Every structure is written in structure tokens, then in C-alpha cells.
Simulated assay, not measured.
Amino acid sequence: MAQSAAPPAVAPDAPLTLPVRAILPWAAFFGILMLILLYFVGAEGGTAAVFSGEGVHEWVHDGRHLLGFPCH
């Protein structure tokens, strides 16, 4: 009855590090994704609109005000 409920702590063999080559493609992907999102929130519905109408503007309207973009 001298057993503990927790398993003994085992030290890892090597420190947990990620090489830059593993992170770089994901960073580029999310960077491009954020630029596209920023375009739709900040510029869509204006002079450089990709889609006609006010549909995209209405979907991102609150986000525009939250980020400080004027739209009225």
C-alpha cells in the first residue's frame, strides 16, 4: 500500500524546440490569411471592391468599427 497515484516524473531526453523551417510555411499561410481578412474588413465595399453589392460590408460591419475603419 505504499504506491502513489501519480506516475514518476520522467525528464525529457531533449528540449522541445521547433525548427524555423517547420514554422515558416505556417507563418506565411496565416500571414496571407490575415491580409485577406484585413482586406475584407477594411477595404471591401469601397472603391477597390471585388464583390458588388453590400453583402460583404454588412457581414464585416461591426468588425470595421471595432478595428477603427470608417464606413459611414
Rank of each mutant, 00 (worst) to 15 (best):
M1V: 02
A2H: 10
A2G: 10
A2M: 07
Q3F: 00
Q3Y: 03
S4K: 05
S4Y: 09
A5W: 06
A5M: 15
A6W: 09
A6F: 00
P7W: 02
P7M: 09
P8I: 14
A9Y: 09
A9N: 01
A9R: 08
V10M: 10
V10R: 04
V10E: 11
V10F: 04
V10N: 01
V10C: 01
A11T: 06
A11F: 11
P12D: 11
P12V: 03
P12A: 10
D13F: 08
D13S: 15
A14K: 12
A14F: 13
P15I: 04
P15R: 13
P15T: 06
T17L: 06
L18V: 15
L18E: 15
L18C: 06
P19I: 00
V20T: 11
V20S: 11
R21G: 15
A22D: 15
A22K: 15
I23N: 01
L24K: 13
P25M: 13
W26Q: 12
W26T: 14
W26D: 14
W26H: 15
A28V: 15
A28W: 15
F29H: 12
F29P: 00
F29G: 13
F30M: 07
F30P: 04
G31H: 11
G31D: 05
M34V: 08
M34Q: 07
M34D: 12
M34R: 12
L35V: 13
L35M: 05
L35I: 08
I36P: 06
I36K: 02
I36G: 10
L37M: 07
L38Y: 01
L38A: 08
L38C: 07
L38I: 00
L38V: 06
Y39K: 06
Y39M: 07
F40H: 04
F40M: 10
F40E: 10
V41P: 12
V41A: 14
V41K: 10
V41C: 03
G42P: 00
G42S: 12
A43F: 13
A43M: 09
E44M: 06
E44D: 10
E44I: 02
G45P: 12
G45E: 03
G45I: 11
G46K: 05
G46E: 02
G46P: 00
T47E: 14
A48L: 14
A48P: 01
A48T: 04
A49T: 03
A49S: 15
F51Q: 11
F51P: 07
F51K: 05
S52E: 11
G53K: 08
G53Y: 11
E54M: 10
E54W: 02
E54N: 14
G55M: 07
V56N: 05
V56G: 00
H57D: 09
H57W: 01
E58I: 05
W59R: 03
W59Q: 10
W59T: 08
W59P: 02
V60W: 03
H61P: 04
D62Y: 00
D62N: 05
G63Y: 03
G63F: 11
G63S: 12
R64T: 02
R64A: 14
R64C: 06
R64G: 01
H65C: 11
H65D: 09
H65V: 09
L66H: 06
L66C: 06
L67C: 08
L67A: 00
L67R: 03
L67H: 01
G68Y: 10
F69R: 03
F69C: 00
C71S: 08
C71Q: 09
H72T: 04
H72W: 02
